[in-house]
Simulated scan of single mutants.
Amino acid sequence: MRAYSLLVSGLLCAVPAAAAEVPLERHALGSWEADIGYSGVVRDGDTLYVSGVPCRGQDMQAAVRACYGELTKILQRFGADSSQVVKETAYTTDMDALVKAIPARKAFFADGRYPAASWVQVSRLFNAEDMLEVEWTVRLK
């Protein structure tokens, strides 16, 4: 038991102190974020946490193209692409329409490199006109 304790203690001591001191980077995507009280993107080392990007359109196909187009621009800002998206959460007010828009969504992920994903239907989003909101977790390296 003592050897195990020493091993664990040694492993804990081997973690560089600087790794724990790397500050989070907060990036605004729009001026409204400060009014509401959130950051559009938070970078924690090599991980990006992208807040939900809300979208609307004439129909769900248009909303999907708008959301994923905006998310792609965010990735490009950090030198990333869709293959680095590890987790997606999509909130929609119309799941049936989102399911029909799957081909439009899949077009944004090159070579079938899809993230882990959860899709949730909600009664409304922050802005009542929005049909879809998508958030991503992205690995930069």
Rank of each mutant, 00 (worst) to 15 (best):
R56G: 13
V120G: 04
R65E: 09
S83K: 11
A90H: 06
A107Y: 10
G57V: 01
Y38N: 01
L24M: 06
A90D: 12
A62H: 12
A19G: 01
M60C: 15
G30C: 09
Q58K: 12
M131H: 04
D94W: 07
W32T: 07
Y4K: 01
W32G: 09
R65H: 09
R43H: 10
V53Q: 11
V41C: 06
A110D: 08
M131F: 07
W32A: 07
A80S: 11
K87D: 11
N127P: 01
Y91F: 10
V120E: 14
C67G: 01
K100V: 05
F108A: 08
E33Q: 11
A17W: 05
F109H: 13
A3Q: 12
V120R: 14
G79S: 06
V122K: 07
R43D: 13
L24Q: 02
I74P: 07
M1N: 14
E21C: 03
I102N: 04
G79H: 02
K87C: 07
Y38V: 08
A101L: 02
V86T: 14
R124K: 05
Q61P: 09
V42R: 02
Q84W: 02
Y38Q: 04
E133M: 11
R65W: 00
G40Q: 05
M1V: 14
D59Q: 15
A80W: 09
A101C: 02
S118K: 14
R124Q: 06
D35H: 02
V122N: 08
L12V: 12
Y68F: 08
P16C: 11
A18M: 14
V85I: 15
R43T: 08
D94F: 08
E133L: 06
A14I: 13
M60E: 08
Q84V: 02
L98P: 06
L6R: 09
Y38P: 00
S82M: 09
G10N: 12
V86Q: 12
K73A: 04
K141D: 08
A110P: 15
Y4C: 12
G57M: 05
D81I: 06
N127G: 08
R139H: 04
G37P: 04
W119T: 15
R43A: 15
C55N: 02
Y68T: 00
Y68D: 03
Q121W: 14
E70N: 03
G112S: 08
